[in-house]
C-alpha cells in the first residue's frame, strides 16, 4: 500500500480549504468516502503517495432530504443505510436497487453512491439508475455550489468534470411525477461480488390509459461512459410499453452501445444483452409505474 496522509474535515468549507491548499501547492489530495474503491486501488494499481480527505464527517454528505418537489441524497451515505430507508426505496426503487447491488453486505456498510459516481467506471452500478431518474450532481466549489446533470458528469473511463479543488456533496432528483417509476438491472455471470458486464437503468411515466408519456433509458458497461439513450426513450414514449415498444427500445440500446471485447464479454455479447436488460428493466419500471398512476408517491 502506498504512503498517505489523512485528514477528516468536518465542514464543506474546511474540506474545500484542504483540497484548495493541495491543488495550489501541486500536491495530490484524494477524497475518501467509503474507500471501497480507493483502498483497493492504493494497494494495487495506484500506490503513489497522497493525502486522503475523508468527507464522511461532513454533515451535508450524509444528509437525506425528501422535500415537496425534490429529493437530495448525500454523496457519502453507505448503501446499507440507503437500503434501509423505506421512503427512498418507495420513491426511487431503481436507484436504491442499484446501490443494493454493490458488492456484498460487508461492502455496502461503506460503499456510497457518491463514491460509485466519482470513481467514474463505465460499469459503476448506480450511474445508469441515477441518470434514468434525472439525478443532478451538487458539487461543492470555491465560488459556491455548482450543479451538473449526472449524464454530463463522467467524462471518460475513470474521469469526471470535478476540478481537483471540488467535491461532490450529493445528488438531487426531481420527485417522481404520478405514474413514474424506475428500475435497474445489471448482468453478471455470478449472483454477487462481480462487476457489471452490462447495466440498464430505466425510468418511465405512464398516464391513466397506460400510455408512456416520458422515459429515460441509460446503459452501462457498453461504452467508455454510461450512455443516456434518447432513441430508446423515443421508442417508448407514446406507446403502451408493449412488447413491440420494448423490443424497439432494446434495438436502440444495441445500436447506441459501443462496447469492447474483454475478459468479461465480447462486443457481440454485450450488444445482445444490453437489449435484453433494457427490455426487462423497462418492463419492471412499467409494472411499478402502473401501481402509481393514481397515487402520488409523495
Amino acid at each position: 500500500m502506498g504512503a498517505f496522509a489523512y485528514v477528516a474535515p468536518s465542514s464543506v468549507a474546511e474540506a474545500l480549504a484542504v483540497l484548495d491548499e493541495h491543488a495550489s501547492l501541486g500536491k495530490r489530495a484524494q477524497v475518501l468516502a467509503g474507500g471501497t474503491d480507493v483502498l483497493v486501488q492504493m494497494r494495487t494499481v495506484d500506490t503513489q503517495p497522497r493525502t486522503l480527505v475523508d468527507i464522511k464527517g461532513v454533515a451535508e454528505t450524509n444528509r437525506v432530504d425528501i422535500g415537496a418537489t425534490e429529493t437530495f441524497i448525500g454523496a457519502a451515505i453507505p448503501s446499507a443505510v440507503l437500503n434501509d430507508n423505506a421512503e427512498l426505496k418507495a420513491l426511487f426503487p431503481g436507484v436504491i436497487e442499484s446501490a443494493d447491488l454493490i458488492g456484498s453486505t460487508q461492502i455496502q456498510g461503506r460503499a456510497s453512491i457518491g463514491g460509485n459516481l466519482c470513481n467514474s467506471s463505465p460499469a459503476g452500478d448506480t450511474i445508469p439508475a441515477l441518470i434514468a431518474s434525472s439525478g443532478v450532481c451538487v458539487i461543492a466549489a470555491r465560488g459556491g455550489n455548482r450543479e451538473v446533470p449526472v449524464e454530463d458528469f463522467v467524462s471518460g473511463v475513470g474521469t469526471n468534470v470535478l476540478e481537483p479543488n471540488e467535491f461532490l456533496i450529493g445528488i438531487k432528483f426531481p420527485n417522481p411525477a404520478p405514474g413514474t417509476a424506475d428500475a435497474y438491472l445489471r448482468f453478471i455471470p455470478r449472483t454477487e461480488m462481480d462487476i457489471a458486464v452490462v447495466g440498464a437503468g430505466v425510468s418511465v411515466t405512464i398516464d391513466e390509459n397506460g400510455t408512456c408519456t416520458a422515459a429515460r433509458v441509460a446503459i452501462g458497461a457498453v461504452a467508455p461512459t454510461v450512455l443516456l439513450v434518447t432513441r430508446a426513450s423515443d421508442a417508448l414514449v407514446g406507446t403502451q410499453l408493449d412488447d413491440t415498444a420494448l423490443e424497439a427500445a432494446g434495438v436502440a440500446c444495441t445500436e447506441a452501445a459501443s462496447p469492447i471485447s474483454d475478459k468479461r464479454g465480447t462486443v457481440e455479447y454485450r450488444r445482445k444483452v444490453v437489449a435484453v436488460l433494457c427490455r426487462r428493466a423497462t418492463a419492471i419500471a412499467r409494472d411499478r409505474a402502473k401501481l402509481r398512476v393514481r397515487t402520488k408517491v409523495r
Binding site: 455471470p189 455470478r190 449472483t191 454477487e192 461480488m193 462481480d194 462487476i195 474483454d262 475478459k263 468479461r264
Partner: peptide
C-alpha cells in the same frame, strides 16, 4: 465460469478473483 484468459502476448488477463470467477456462496 473459471478459466485462464490470456492476451496475445501471453499475459494472463484475469489474475484476481474478480475476473477469475470461482462460484460465490449464493
Amino acid at each position: 465460469n473459471e478459466e485462464y484468459i490470456y492476451d496475445k502476448d501471453g499475459v494472463l488477463e484475469n489474475a484476481g478473483f474478480l475476473d477469475y470467477r470461482i462460484p460465490v456462496a449464493s
